[in-house]
Amino acid sequence: MSSKFEPRIVGFLCNWCSYSGADLAGTSRVKYPPNIDIIRVMCSGRVDPQFVIKAFEKGADGVLVCGCHPGDCHYAEGNYKAGRRIPLLKKMLSQLGIEEERLRLEWVSASEGERFAAVVRDMTEQVRKLGPLNRNGGGENG
């Protein structure tokens, strides 16, 4: 392992807007750090809190959830469900000693390749500053 800390980020992207947005970043050859591994889900509302927890448990330093912009959801309102779930989950994570900033929910449309890249860049830097997630210590119960 190199001396420089390279964050591991798992991204859950909805099939309709954000996954296409990430595809567009690729077709447009927009560059962003290779730290994110993208997992496709049909809707951001499908992102079960256990997916996020599993990712942190298995070594992720950050988790990014992306869905359609409010009002644009392919399934009418799945993104609103994510919009309610993720903030709750953040609160829970902070009680487990995981900084809230390690979990992020962003709206990325199919035409926002540039925006997706910018989000990944920003998040990678943010998680890099936070450092590796210490899964064996820290936190109020650690």
Partner: peptide, 12 residues
Amino acid sequence: NIREHCSWVSTD
């Protein structure tokens, strides 16, 4: 997806 999400978005 090792093209759109990988080879095309990085130079390293």
